[in-house]
Computed example of a mutant assay.
Amino acid sequence: MVGFGDLVKCHRNPRVFIGRAFGASAVLLGLSLAAYPLVAVDKLYFGSAYLLAEAVTVAVVWFLVPQIEEVLHPHLAPHSLQKVRTEIRFVTTTDFAGMDRIFDATLDPEQAMDDADFLELMKRGTLVRVMQEDFGMGSERISRIAGYYSLWPLKEGEFDRIVQGTLKEENLKPCDIPDLNDSSVYVLYLSEVCSENDADHRSMLMRDMLRYIAQLLRDNPNIDKIATWPSSEDGKRWSDKLGLKPCRVQRKGRRIYALDRRAVLASPYIPSGQFKERVVVTY
């Protein structure tokens, strides 16, 4: 029997590094171009000096990017551990490492919101829900985040910019996303739905999401519609099944799909039963 203990891995966020490296390189290039006419040096020597300075700059940026500690859970082999519990609940900040791992495995990391901004939105406690699976055998126990979804309440202005292609959802800032009970909220924007490839309760997560959306629409009559950008074939099939339609006022960029509140609440795909803040299934 293999013992499953938590392993801690320290790594630097590649998105932060790439952004900062590009910025520093742009500054260095600008200074070099400005200095070249003033320096009486052979082009070959000047180019070599520039490349050396560029390498030093990238190395300095790399070491200045703060490290992130991530708790790594071993791969769960179905033959070695048995699922004993599944829970769907609102997110906590400790869930971020597991969520980030799922995102990078299922969606394009280049389309991710800034980590600090996403963490700030997680702290509101009502915008992101996760599915946690617990496994065990004998005295061994291990848990993992197996899926999650996030809903961003948006005002009409921000939503129109997304539809028109002048604003991408990953560039939204917490200040662009009001609280759910804000009367100016116009749309519930489904930003992310991710799950482990071997998660066998994806439908459970989707039912929870649909119940939560319906509950939010009932509690907030000012919310006019739900919307999303189906970036994958699965997302497009899901959008078609629920009846979401492409927004007509769209000139460029991503194709955003939406459905008005009355059609959502009348949809036969909204599960029966009340939304629960915490859903637990034991086996």
Rank of each mutant, 00 (worst) to 15 (best):
R141C: 15
D234S: 08
E170R: 13
D160L: 15
K155V: 12
D176W: 14
E140P: 08
N171K: 09
I177D: 05
I256S: 00
D260E: 09
R161Y: 08
D198M: 05
K241C: 14
T166I: 07
F275I: 01
L180N: 02
C175L: 04
L172M: 03
V264E: 00
R251I: 14
I226W: 02
E233S: 08
A258N: 07
S203R: 12
W152P: 05
D234Y: 08
S183Q: 08
W152D: 12
K252A: 06
C175I: 15
W152V: 00
H201R: 11
Y212P: 06
S139T: 14
I142C: 15
L154V: 02
I162W: 04
R211P: 02
E277R: 11
D179N: 08
C247R: 03
L265Q: 09
I177M: 06
R254A: 08
R262D: 12
L190Y: 01
A214T: 09
P246L: 03
M204G: 05
Q274L: 10
I270W: 07
N197M: 13
P178F: 06
P271I: 04
M204S: 07
D179H: 13
Q215F: 14
L167F: 06
V279Q: 10
R261P: 04
K236C: 02
P268L: 02
S183M: 04
V280Q: 08
S239C: 03
K245L: 11
L244R: 01
G147V: 01
V187S: 00
E196R: 11
S191E: 04
N220W: 09
Y212N: 03
L154A: 01
P174H: 00
E158V: 07
V279D: 11
S183R: 13
I177A: 02
